[in-house]
Amino acid sequence: MSTSPKNTQSFNEHYNFAYLDEQTKRMIRRAILKGIAIPGYQVPFASREMPMPYGWGTGGVQLTAAVIGDKDILKVIDQGSDDTTNAVALRDFFKQTTGVSTTTSTKEATLIQTRHRIPEAPLNGDQVLIYQVPIPEPLRFLEPRETETRKMHALEEYGLMHVKLYEDIAHFGHISTTYAYPVMVNSRYVMDPSPIPKFDNPKMHQMPALQLFGAGREKRIYAIPPYTDVVSLDFEDHPFTPQEFSEPCALCAAENVYLDEVILDDKGSRMFVCSDSDYCEGRRAQGHKGHMAADPVHSNELSEA
């Protein structure tokens, strides 16, 4: 070997680098290049069995395995957090099978595999964001037949999608979809952005980083190149609006970020905190303090009492 992975101690030599065999990587790599050439179009690929259940993001895992190299720094997030069981397991999987460095810092990472969120910190042109996708076909709930949805994409027949959104407005006075809110990519393909909150949709538009999407069970890969138009579907008289939060993060006082509700006790006390844990920690380290942030003096008094 002319180049050896950095962290040879934890590198499991019994597997090929990044687990997948080279033939599978080649097939996935060809699909990625086609996906980039046709932004938002779902490229079929021969998805492989991975040593984890489909719900764990085997599509994203296969993309990461085909893209990752020994100089990469990998971050894995699940719902914005680096510390969930899913995120920790996938990060360890790649540590074991590649020996690459991992990080929880959005800024440091060269590859970010994600489930259900886009980081709050803006990404740069040297980074790649890899999404785990459960259902890649945005038209699936309107038309179960793959042959028909393929035809609809081919003919740009997206009228049904607008009808569905319009029915929402008729029922609720607004579009009720809050996750996996459909987008139009490069003025051509309607695309499912994966189950991210619609709060994150505007971040996809003209993003400097390459975005790759992998659906393992459904065997589809798609992509958004950097600086590509990504527009959330809407109507002139009912324009798209991302979620808004009435209060800042209780821990770091950040505004205009996506917040999770945390239940504090069985009496119904709760607080809203950043879903992006790295972003929240970074702000607290810089000295930003929300109204529920632990005050060292105050908590000392409490423990003495």
């Binding site: 080279e22 990587k25 080649r26 020994d70």
Partner: peptide, 9 residues
């Protein structure tokens, strides 16, 4: 393995 990856990137 590593050179195919570098060319792909």
């Amino acid at each position: 393995v590593l050179e195919a990856q570098a060319v792909f990137r």
